[in-house]
Simulated assay, not measured.
Amino acid sequence: MTEAPVPAPVHDEAHGGGLGSRLSWLRAAVLGANDGVVSTAGLVVGVAGATGSRSALLTAGLAGLLAGSMSMAAGEYVSVSTQRDSEKAALATERRELREQPEAELTELTELLAARGLTPDVAREAAEQLTARDALRAHARVELGIDPDDLTNPWHAAVASFLAFTVGALLPLLAIVLPSPAHRLWITVLSVLAALTLTGWTSARLGAAPVPRALLRNVGGGALAMAVTYGAGSLLGAVGV
């Protein structure tokens, strides 16, 4: 019996997991940019409903951009730090179990490989080979779905979220302050809707979701947000608040 092909399922899983991780990060970046577009557009359009002052629009837009990007970065840092701590704790537990119960862990790895379609004999042989090569890595990938050499990095996540939100927020900010007062509102609305179409299409494709439904939700939600904030701003401006 040749055993050369046995480790292949684990290797393929790690490769697929890496691709999935990259796609998740890309999708998170697209969604972060989308948040920047919607939240900043709602803010500046609302202010535009109350006043035509370019300085007021710039101040509000910059404040919204900085507050939103810092909030996104802080939230992502906390979230990913918690995930990383959980991964480290799981690896520590697995390391202790391998030290204290090596036979039980070998049996567990065998059962996990058998559950993936290997015959009992092949699963046992594969588990023994993987354990001899690197027991912790084998259990981390097969049992926990974790790559010990590629744990999530909270700083990377925080910086990525900050940049994604900032890039998205710059579009409505520049669209509202650069054009003339007579055209700034429509230029902003059209620019935002175009950007939401792009981010909605991209996120749907990355998530293998129906594109028309994603576009409707994304563009419709952004349009509704701008309509509500503009109406509120106009009302407040009319009463002199």
Rank of each mutant, 00 (worst) to 15 (best):
A126V: 06
V80W: 06
G64Y: 03
R137T: 13
R141H: 12
Q83N: 09
E108W: 05
D85V: 05
E128K: 06
E108V: 05
R133P: 00
G117D: 03
A127Q: 00
A123W: 02
E100A: 04
S71I: 10
D85I: 09
R99L: 14
S71Y: 13
L130G: 00
M70T: 13
A138P: 04
A126T: 15
T82Q: 15
R133Q: 14
E108S: 11
A104E: 09
Q101E: 14
Y77H: 15
G61N: 02
E94S: 04
L62K: 12
E100K: 02
G117N: 04
R95E: 15
Y77G: 10
S81P: 09
E105I: 11
L109I: 11
T59F: 15
R99D: 15
V142G: 01
Q83C: 07
A126H: 03
L57A: 02
G75A: 10
A126G: 07
A127H: 00
L57G: 02
E100V: 09
A67F: 08
L66T: 14
L57Y: 02
A123R: 06
T93Y: 13
L58K: 09
A104F: 07
D85A: 15
S79D: 12
L66M: 13
R96S: 14
L57C: 03
S79E: 14
G68L: 04
P102G: 02
E103N: 09
A135T: 01
L118S: 07
E108M: 10
R84I: 06
E143W: 03
A74C: 14
L118P: 01
A63N: 06
L130A: 03
T110H: 07
S69N: 10
R141S: 10
A90C: 11
T110I: 08
Q83S: 13
Y77S: 12
A73W: 05
A115I: 07
L106I: 07
A123S: 04
R96C: 10
A127P: 00
R95K: 14
D134G: 00
E103R: 12
A67C: 05
R116D: 09
G117L: 02
R137W: 07
Q101Y: 13
E105Q: 12
V122W: 08
Q101W: 11
L136W: 01
